[in-house]
Structure formats: C-alpha cells, structure tokens
C-alpha cells in the first residue's frame, strides 16, 4: 500500500514541492527548493530565513523575474551614518499594523459615538477596551492610572495586530523581530520612569535609586539599582520576541518534517500538528499582547504606589 509513497526520492520530492507550492506560501516552497538541491543539513538555517527580516515582500501570485530575489523588492536606502534605514518586511508589516489600527479603530470610534449601545464589530472592540480598563489598568494602577490608559490601549492593540498579521498567509509578525520588541520595551521603560517621577516627584525618585543605604555604599548600590530599572523592560522585550519567534519556528519545523523524511506519509501528521500549533499561536497572540500590557501597567503601578505607601525601607 506504500507503493505510491516509495517512489524515487526525487519524484516524491517534486510532487511534494508542487503540492506545497500550490497550497501554501513561498516559504515552504523555498524549503522544498532547497531540499531538491539535495541534502537537508541546512534545513534549520533555511527555516530561520523565513523568520528573519528580509528586503523582499512575498506577494500572492507574484514572482520576481530575477531568480535571486524572493518576491517584491522593498525600498532600499543608502546607509545614513552607519544606520540602515531601508524598509524591510518587518517594517512594512509594522506600518501595515499601524495603518489598520488608525483606519479601523477611528471608524469604530466614530460608529460607537453614534449609537450608545455598540453592536457588531464596535461591540467587539469595546469588549477589549473595557477589559484593558477594568482588568488591567484599574486593579494595577488605581484611578490615577486612567491618564495612561491611551498608551496602554495603543500598546495592546498594536502588539495584537502585529502578532495576528504573522498568522495570515504571506504575512510576517513584526514582533518576531527583536528590534521591534526592543523599541516597544524602550517606550515602556520611558513610560514606567515618567509615571514614577510624576507620582513621586523627582527628588523621591532619585532617593529611591540610592536604595536608602549609607552613603559609603552608594558607588555600589546606585549602579545595581539603575541596573534593576532595566531588567524589567528587558524581560518584556525578550518574552514577546521569544514567544512569537518560537511559535513560528515550531510551525515551520513541523512542515519541514515532510522534507526531512521525504515522504508523503508524514504530511497528514505534521500538517495536523502544525494546525494545532497554529491554533495555539492564535491564543498566544492574544495572550502575549495581554501579558505585555499587563506587566507594563503593573510596573508603572509599582512605581506610582511607592509614594502612597511612604517610601521608607
């Protein structure tokens, strides 16, 4: 019964490659292409190419005539003082996420202003907004945190849309790029410090940095306390990046198993598992947006509460 599976390697390979090319995006196609060249010793690094940033955008039914270019070439710029400002795949999807947010959310806001009881999509968005306000901001930061609600809502929806864009075919999640999450974490760092300074006053904020120890220990304690300010946003950055990248690697690796074993018999199993992981990824996209927003507001709240509890160690 396995006769149709035990064709010559190359034939199966061609068949698999053609099928995959027909049904999925060109990332799987590139894996197949690579496999066809023989040897899968570099399969993993090949997979990583689809997670890394690139200069090319994959567009349905578009093939670049130049065989060295995988897809539509995005705008390239000269290096400016050693910094590359070229538009890449992840930059494109980040801008797409912000465009989607600006258009969709302003439309929803205008619609929700008109009818008091929002319905349809407006209702869905309102559920998220009320959730962020009542379950994240108010318990963590109290009433004083409401003035930071716009920042946290923007954070939540921006990360959510960036995560979800990676789950549609031909898409890529910009949050799977450590520079993007680092940017988000730097903004979170600035907001955490600003909210602490506004709530405590600059003097109290500096006094907290000394840790309240004898002045002879200040040269040791101040660097450690300053370091402590950076560990929280750093953890935020790494957590979001690792979660989004990890899921994509698992999906690509499961699909890649077909090409490792060079057999169609593996396909049902690996596609089923990949679908399961995809569903998990859908959940993780929401979960990570929630966690990032939750922890940011939590750290902002911790800094703001210091004053009300009386800063006495």
């Amino acid at each position: 019964m396995f006769s149709w599976i035990l064709l010559s390697d190359k034939k199966v390979h061609q068949a698999v490659a053609d099928t995959v090319h027909a049904v999925t995006d060109s990332s799987a196609h590139a894996v197949a292409e690579h496999g066809a060249h023989g040897g899968d010793e570099n399969l993993f690094t090949q997979l990583l190419h689809h997670i890394y940033d690139s200069k090319y955008l994959e567009i349905p039914f578009y093939h670049n005539p130049d065989p060295n270019k995988h897809g539509f070439e995005l705008m390239q710029f000269e290096k400016w003082y050693g910094i590359d400002f070229s538009i890449t795949k992840h930059v494109f999807f980040m801008w797409l996420a912000s465009a989607v947010l600006i258009l969709v959310l302003s439309w929803v806001a205008r619609k929700n202003l008109k009818n008091r009881v929002p319905k349809g999509f407006g209702n869905l968005v309102e559920v998220f907004v009320v959730f962020v306000r009542d379950e994240i901001v108010l318990p963590n930061m109290g009433k004083g945190g409401l003035k930071y609600l716009p920042y946290l809502l923007t954070n939540f929806f921006f990360i959510l849309v960036m995560n979800l864009l990676g789950l549609i075919p031909y898409g890529a999640s910009a949050t799977g790029n450590v520079s993007v999450t680092a940017g988000l974490a730097i903004i979170a760092f600035i907001m955490i410090q600003l909210s602490a300074i506004r709530a405590q006053g600059f003097g109290h904020y500096l006094a907290h940095l000394t840790g309240g120890v004898h002045w002879a220990l200040w040269p040791i304690m101040i660097p450690i306390e300053v370091l402590g300010l950076f560990t929280k946003p750093f953890a935020l950055c790494i957590r979001l990046f690792a979660n989004m990248t990890g899921g994509h690697i698992v999906i690509l690796a499961l699909i890649g198993l077909i090409f490792v074993f060079k057999s169609l018999a593996v396909a049902p199993v690996s596609v089923t598992f990949a679908l399961g992981i995809y569903m998990l990824e859908l959940f993780v996209a929401f979960l990570q947006a929630y966690i990032f927003t939750m922890l940011t507001s939590l750290f902002m709240g911790l800094g703001m509460q210091m004053e009300s509890h009386g800063h006495r160690h």
Binding site: I224, T231, A235, F299, L302
Partner: peptide, 14 residues
C-alpha cells in the same frame, strides 16, 4: 508575584 520576579536576575546582573 510581580515584585519578586526580578529579584533573582538582579544578583547575577550585579
């Protein structure tokens, strides 16, 4: 739990 989360890494980071 949050206030305790960064205690451990702080020692190593120092």
């Amino acid at each position: 739990v949050a206030p305790y989360l960064t205690l451990g890494i702080q020692i190593a980071a120092a």
